[in-house]
Every structure is written in C-alpha cells, then in structure tokens.
Amino acid sequence: MKGSYSKADESELIQASINGDRLAFGEIVNRYRKMVARTVKGMLGDTVFAEDIGQEVFVKLYHSLSEFRGDAKLATYIQKIAVNLTLNEIKRRKRFSSLFIQKENDDIYEFDVADEGHEEKRDAKEIVNKALMSLDPKFRIIVTMRMLQGYSTKETAEILDLPLGTVLSRLSRAQEQIREIIVKL
C-alpha cells in the first residue's frame, strides 16, 4: 500500500517498512518521536546531542524491524532501543569526562518555540531538567520512565530488564534525592 498511512495499524506499517516503504516508516517515526524524545532528552538533557541519539534509535529500529516478532508492543521495543542507546551514550561520555554531561546541560538548554513567553512552562521544564540531571543515570532512567513516560513500575521493570524490587528500591531512593534537589531549585 502506497500513499497515506495515518490510519494504518502497526503491523501494516511494520510490514510496509520492511518492504522499504519510506512513507510507512515515516509514519512510525512520527508516531513515536515524542516518546523517544522524552526518554533521550530526559536522560541526556534537552540538547542538540540528544537529536543524534534520537535519529540513531529510529535507524536501529529500521534495521531490526525484520527481527521484531510482535511479542511485545512496538512502543516497548522502541523504548528498549532508546534506553540502550542513551545509556551507551552516557557511558561513552563518562569515559571522556565525568563532568561533561553536567556542564553541557548547564550550558546548552533548548526550549521549544512554543515555550517562548511562557515563563511558568519554562520554569517547569527547567526544574524537571535540572532535577533529572542531578541524579545518577541509574536513578535518572527510572524517574524518566515514571515521571515523563508515565509507565507503571511493572512496565518500567520490563523495559529496563530489571527485577521489580530493584525498580521499587531505586524509585524510592530517587524520590528522596529529588526531594532534596528540588528544595534548592
């Protein structure tokens, strides 16, 4: 099927994308780009570098679509790719400098055009970004999944391949840390 895919279901989009249909894969990107942006930008900060990782997520998805068996939702599959690539990027940066990420995010904040003139909205985003960036990545990923993506602890455990108990304990520690950080903001 060529043409508009706006009403197509997931399996149809996946099959068409496997067959090399640009429009079909474009529809997948459009449907999930915000979800990927929340994970990648929540973890790396709202920076230009996050764009590259976002692109990489979809490139990797395209090349692994034929391996997608459909056992899990496509969203979960994409989310796992996004988490893995983001955590790899954090590890890669840590090798260069342990201070790099914090400094970078203090320096380069990007706000959507729609946020201009909306002080309160900008405030909210700044608080969330600063709180997230103050956390250790292993807590940050849990908070991102919960606070920005709205996943339950069970879903978070499934995406991160962690035991539910680990997610709960990390969530509890993250909450304590965020409480301390947020008071200072």
Binding site: K34, E120, K121, D123
Partner: peptide, 9 residues
C-alpha cells in the same frame, strides 16, 4: 506534560 514539560525533536 500539560504544565510545559514536553519534549520533541
């Protein structure tokens, strides 16, 4: 998200 914490590329 409604409070302004939205992310997109």
């Amino acid at each position: 998200e409604d409070s302004g914490v939205s992310y997109d590329f």
